[in-house]
Amino acid sequence: MSSCIGATLFAAVVVGTYALYRLDPWANRGNDSPTRSALDLQDQFSIQPQLIHYLQTSEIPIPLDVVRAIAVGLEDRIYVAGDRTVYRFGSDGAGEVVLHTDGEPTCLAIGFNRHVAPGTFYVGVGKAIEVFLPNGEPLAVWHGLSDKTVLTSIAVSENDIYAADAGERVVIRFNPQGEIAGQIGRTDPDREMPGFILPSAYFDVAIGPDGELYAVNPGARRIEEYTSDGMLEGFWGKAGTAVDAFFGCCNPAHMAILPDGRFVTSEKGIPRIKVYNGFGEFECVVAGPSELGVRDSATVDARLEKNTQVFDIAIDSQGRILVLDPNTKRIRIFESRQEK
């Protein structure tokens, strides 16, 4: 009997010690535990390498505290708006402040060669557009927008300036004198215009190589083409998590058009920059979350205000894609692998 008890006690001590050893108070075995219940975004955050046709070739640090928008001006010089200034980078990466704005800029466009006033700066500041000469001298301030205005993007065509107003949910067309020449995209059941669905203040416009106007309709997860007098010509884009679709409630956040007419889109939520051909068919990925330095664990981490991972994009004349990285305050330059 006593040997029975002794054996039981011995077994209990052994099993108890083993149980203590197996205890996992720090969840060390958590990451590969079958009972792990966390949302796994690994598949969405690591994009298949064969889909990525671009390569980051260089990086330019930006000496600004806040970066808001990126644009390419004459001679492929890069401009970044932020900190109540517009900053210009030379070809060697060194830069200087070209102009000071009245308030915090939210968007930026620069007149290109065929524009009526090449090199002119159009900067969205608050509820007005501030216009500057190529040398940085202030030229005019275009008021006349509504109280609800939230300027999110400016695009220039040969003869017009288009400003995306997320507050009024329209694209406003200005003539070079700063007069409002028209409103595009207002909801109009008579003309079967559904209007722009803008859950958040991300609303981008861009001009195609032939002067046609493209606007993102983020709430509908599509890109729409308009004539200069506001007729909806066509649209493309589908919603979904898959790599060829636009993710979440309101994407893409930014858009740019390559010289050959292909589209480059930048999404938020799952940050990814992708290329679509002129018909809106998915072509390739420029950069996924890992290329942009965003881990899936960082999306929830609110400690450093990093929960909005939105990357503005611009394109230079050689088709290089310039990505404004607000986290590292750098410009990442991507070039096509095939051309390299």
Partner: peptide, 16 residues
């Protein structure tokens, strides 16, 4: 709710 935080992580992709 069992507290798995899946929705929290999902929501953080947008507004959080």
């Amino acid at each position: 709710c069992i507290g798995c935080a899946k929705c929290v992580k999902g929501c953080a992709l947008m507004n959080g």
